[in-house]
Design a protein around this nucleic acid. Structure first.
Length: 367
DNA sequence: ATCTAAGCGCAGACCACACGTTCCT
DNA sequence: CAAGGAACGTGTGGTCTGCGCTTAG
């Protein structure tokens, strides 16, 4: 879904967004976040707030969020699964990538009118309070923050194990989870919870994404919870995808304080205690979270998260075509690779020799 | 309303081995 | 410092298996 460097006007760079994001038509510095139909202008959230909060007429202007993928054209669809506003092109691009993506439920995006920054919507401080605030990013921000960042005042002693990784791993986790449907459930709360200062410490688990479920696979009496979400997966008709997601997101709510405590409490979690017989891995003293994120750091991390989210790919990527070719020709027993017999090796050698002599080329890995 | 069994779907494990990377001489 | 070899780690796909969820009885 790589975006081409289109030439449809709109300056590049600028602000805290992508270098190729369209910049605000007003301030010419920040990345635009909404498109005002009435003004036919792309505006950053700051200018949008200023302009459309100026008077009642202006506040009635219908705006639409800019596509979160290309950030260059107005969004046409809202992907519920990704919690992302996408233009038609990006929507088609992203959701044709693989069968899972195709199952994402999208709805035509509705224009915004009135003040999205006002108190009626969300607390101004929370929604627009940050410098260079990106309102369309707030879902992402909140999403990221809700997972990455822990309420410093309630330093949950359960959070450290699972989310012991550094923030980027957090991000990866969220990224991995893909589905952001919990955002809606969390938004309201996290919009009031923008001040996070602690992030987990880096762990030594791995440098890659590890599904949450995997880490607790062996724990008995694991009680999955789905972050208080009603996925309505089967009802919605994308059971398989949501199923997998639920696997990813599902964690032992009892054993792990995956979610910031405050969130947990708001979710009316019914499983607040480990079941009897299980080992509470998190009952120990809380690990200190020394790292404090400055707003800039936070911004950078959220941006990085968003970048990764945009470029994520669900399809399997073949890094070594030669290995793929070998794997496909390799003998198998019940799907498993089997040892080659001498005869097979000789045949292979004959073929490879023939191939080289015929074509003049050997098998060269293609990257 | 609750329990149980059956059915279904998905994620992960498994295997051998060529190739890439790292380390050492 | 460069070159060569050894050792080790990685990646690849089809099938099986276990687990969780849904549905029916």
């Amino acid at each position: 879904m790589m975006k081409e460097e289109s030439s449809d006007g709109g300056g590049r760079g600028g602000g805290a967004s992508n270098s190729w994001a369209r910049v605000c038509d007003t301030c010419r510095s920040a990345a635009c976040t909404v498109y005002c139909k009435a003004d036919m202008a792309y505006l950053c959230s700051s200018c949008d707030a200023k302009i459309h909060a100026a008077n009642r007429v202006a506040s009635r202007h219908e705006r639409v969020f800019v596509c979160e993928a290309c950030e260059r054209v107005p969004a046409a669809f809202l992907c519920k699964a990704d919690a992302a506003s996408l233009c038609a092109a990006c929507d088609a691009d992203i959701h044709s990538a693989n069968p899972l993506a195709r199952r994402h439920q999208r709805v035509p995006i509705l224009p915004i009118s009135g003040s999205v920054y006002g108190p009626s919507g969300v607390a101004e401080e929370g929604f627009m309070g940050r410098e260079g605030g990106e309102n369309e990013d707030d879902d992402d921000d909140d999403e990221a923050a809700s997972w990455l960042l822990i309420n410093p005042t309630k330093n949950n002693n359960n959070t450290n194990f699972l989310f012991g990784g550094e923030v980027d791993e957090y991000l990866d986790l969220v990224d991995y989870n893909g589905e952001n449907q919990y955002v809606d459930h969390y938004n309201h709360h996290h919009q009031q919870q923008q001040q996070f200062s602690h992030v987990p410490q880096k762990n030594h688990m791995s440098d890659s994404i590890v599904p949450v479920q995997y880490q607790f696979k062996d724990q008995q009496n694991q009680q999955s919870f789905q972050l208080g979400l009603e996925y309505e997966s089967s009802k919605a008709g994308y059971s398989s995808y949501n199923g997998s997601i639920s696997h990813s997101v599902s964690v032992s709510s009892t054993d792990v304080g995956v979610v910031p405590e405050s969130t947990m409490s708001d979710m009316s979690m019914s499983h607040s205690r480990p079941p009897k017989g299980t080992i509470d891995l998190f009952s120990g003293p809380p690990i200190q979270m020394p790292l404090q994120l400055t707003p800039i750091d936070r911004e950078a991390r959220v941006l990085r998260y968003r970048e990764k989210k945009k470029t994520r790919k669900f399809e399997k990527t073949i890094r070594y075509a030669s290995r793929k070719a070998y794997a496909e020709t390799r003998p198998r027993i019940k799907g498993r690779f089997a040892k080659r017999t001498d005869v097979e090796i000789e045949v292979d050698q004959m073929f490879s020799t023939t191939l080289i002599t015929d074509t003049g080329y050997g098998i060269v890995p293609s990257f």
